[in-house]
């Protein structure tokens, strides 16, 4: 049985190539962990977008709205629970983060349902209008965030237990990044299991390939799509909450900013492919961190270069989804 492992190899290749350039092993480990953490956060935000695209050929340019909403909701809850955040107890810290993240996930999921109903559904199958309307949705959502939370950025600091770094010899690894990696891997594993081991997952994978045939087999794909859209929005909210805590500031523009990275990731991965999205996210995260260390001036442009290189190699992205 033939599986395409080549794209997966890119990650260790990139890592090893960076090692001699970075020079010190300690800095390399720190950068690698930072890159993985960033990549996994982007993966969490991007996974839903790539699935909804694959399933219904809908690309939501307003996806950033869910990211921003997640960040704001989580920030509000954490600020309300400030005493627990600053307490010197891991459990109290988690008792503040838990509800904050849960609220972010629920609110962005619900917003996703509304977004799908009001903005996406009327323009199924019309790409130009889809782009315009969902971009309009992003504009309005960004303004509404300012209406509700005010125009100023919100500053929040990480809870006591997640500040600082683990020290292993002369290697420093930020605690929060470890958490981000763990959460990202859990989300990836959860998605992979759902897609590969459940009937819903089977339906989604079949629907990504050929939605019409799934309908002809007697399944209501629209309902499936709404579900995936809501879950994707909720995951974007989760990613947004984590991103906000990572940056320690939250602004209404966060959604549009991160959405650019998200787009690059799903283009690299191959539109519609969750596995490709995972690899793409890690590549983007690692590249950003290595280049950020080696040549800070061009760090953010490096993603475009990465995208261009990958598209030169595989014009449809790493894992093109078999279509019709």
């Amino acid at each position: 049985m033939k599986r395409d492992w080549l794209p997966l190899l890119l990650i260790p290749v990139l890592g090893l190539a960076a090692l001699p350039l970075v020079g010190s092993a300690a800095s390399w480990v720190t950068l690698t962990v930072a890159g993985l953490a960033m990549g996994l956060m982007i993966f969490i935000m991007a996974s839903g977008l790539t699935l909804t695209f694959g399933l219904m050929d809908v690309l939501n340019f307003g996806h950033g709205a869910f990211i921003a909403v997640g960040a704001f909701v989580a920030a509000s809850v954490m600020l309300a629970l400030a005493p627990w955040m600053t307490a010197d107890s891991l459990w109290l810290n988690l008792a503040a983060i838990g509800p904050a993240v849960l609220a972010a996930v629920v609110v962005s999921g619900l917003l996703g349902l509304a977004f799908e109903r009001v903005l996406v559904r009327p323009v199924y199958g019309q790409h130009l209008k889809q782009i315009l309307v969902t971009t309009g949705g992003l504009i309005v959502a960004e303004q509404l965030l300012k209406v509700i939370w005010g125009p100023e950025q919100i500053t929040l600091s990480r809870p006591t237990a997640l500040r600082g770094a683990f020290l292993l010899g002369d290697i420093a690894i930020e605690k929060y990044r470890v958490l981000a990696v763990v959460v990202g891997l859990v989300v990836f594993a959860g998605l992979a299991l759902t897609l590969n081991r459940t009937r819903i997952g089977l339906l989604i994978r079949a629907g990504v390939e050929n939605g019409e045939m799934v309908e002809a087999l007697g399944y209501r794909i629209r309902r499936l799509f709404v579900g995936v859209f809501a879950v994707g929005s909720a995951l974007a909210g989760l990613g947004g909450a984590m991103w906000g805590l990572y940056q320690e500031t939250v602004t209404a523009a966060i959604g549009a900013q991160v959405a650019v990275l998200v787009f690059i990731v799903i283009i690299i991965g191959g539109l519609g492919s969750v596995g490709g999205c995972f690899i793409g996210a890690l590549l983007v995260g690692l590249t950003a961190n290595y280049i950020g260390f080696l040549a800070p001036k061009v760090a953010l442009g490096s993603n475009i270069l990465l995208m261009a290189l990958i598209l030169l190699w595989r014009p449809q992205g790493l894992y093109p989804v078999a279509k019709r």
């Binding site: 994978r205 079949a206 390939e209 050929n210 045939m213 087999l217 209501r220």
Partner: peptide, 27 residues
């Protein structure tokens, strides 16, 4: 709707076959 029609007991084999290429035969 198509799914409801299918659920009445009608199956369809399109000319393009429309098999799911990424899924196994079993799936």
């Amino acid at each position: 709707e198509t799914p409801d029609i299918a659920r009445l007991g009608i199956a369809y084999v399109p000319e393009s076959m429309a098999i799911f290429a990424d899924l196994t035969v079993q799936e």
